[in-house]
Design a protein around this nucleic acid. Structure first.
Length: 223
DNA sequence: GCGACAG
DNA sequence: ATCTTGTCGC
């Protein structure tokens, strides 16, 4: 697989792959959900990608993989996948069995050319994917109800591209959008299914911890 | 031309 | 993303 060197080449690849993105509620087995994330070392020249597979809907870790590889593309809003996807694909390839669903730390179709990292990874792997970002890239939305599950449609150029979702009362919302093979509503509902007692889904939390601390935290002891 | 701008 | 201590609030 070839990766771009310039944003110009990047745009061409994104416009080419966007035609393969499927935004619809497809039928697929859902026994495992994977969180994917990336971290960096050496002044951002080396990427560390982590994938943690959880059973669904139990959300118990069942497998994981960690990959390190040189980061060849700089971080430029709108081109995140060219910086992180190479390492993430390596980590995914290390798994014995591919997960049924990917929840990525970034946007899905809520992207200028409708190909955020979740959609990009979804198309390249064929695995259903969802984008769950901590911040807005594009789009506008109304106020989000301050209650668990509260949501507001994310709109861009007159079309809905995702949901701004309040996973817990009193916290900043997350930006959820379909990556591949899932609908707008199912994307938001699935993210909520991965929420326990924190702002971010367990998938993202596990992957982030593995990528940055190299560890998989233990589930909280239930009172 | 002036802002906005995932991680 | 990453560099870093204490601090505010439930």
């Amino acid at each position: 697989m070839e990766w771009p060197t310039t944003t110009h080449e990047g745009v061409a690849i994104q416009e080419q792959l966007r035609g393969r993105v499927i935004v619809a509620d497809e039928d697929f087995p859902l026994r495992t959900v994977a969180g994917v994330d990336a971290g960096f070392e050496q002044d951002g020249t080396v990427a560390r990608a982590a994938v943690v597979v959880l059973s669904f809907p139990d959300l118990a870790p069942v497998a994981h993989a960690l990959a390190r590889s040189p980061a060849l593309f700089p971080y430029i809003p709108g081109f995140l996948s060219f910086r992180e996807a190479p390492a993430i694909l390596e980590a995914l390839a290390m798994l014995d069995i591919p997960p049924d669903l990917l929840i990525c730390d970034g946007q899905g179709i809520a992207h200028p050319r409708r190909l955020g990292i979740a959609s990009h990874l979804g198309v390249l792997t064929g695995i259903p994917a969802i984008g769950c970002a901590k911040a807005l890239l594009i789009g506008r939305h109304d106020l989000v109800p301050d209650e668990r599950g509260g949501r507001a449609a994310l709109i861009h150029r007159g079309e809905q591209i995702g949901y701004v979702l309040r996973t817990r009362p009193g916290v900043k919302p997350v930006y959820v959008s379909p990556g591949h093979r899932v609908s707008l509503d199912r994307a938001a509902n699935l993210v909520m299914s991965c929420i326990t007692r924190y702002r971010l889904p367990e998938t993202t939390r596990y992957a982030h911890n593995l990528a940055s601390h190299g560890t998989i935290p233990q589930p909280r002891k239930r009172p």
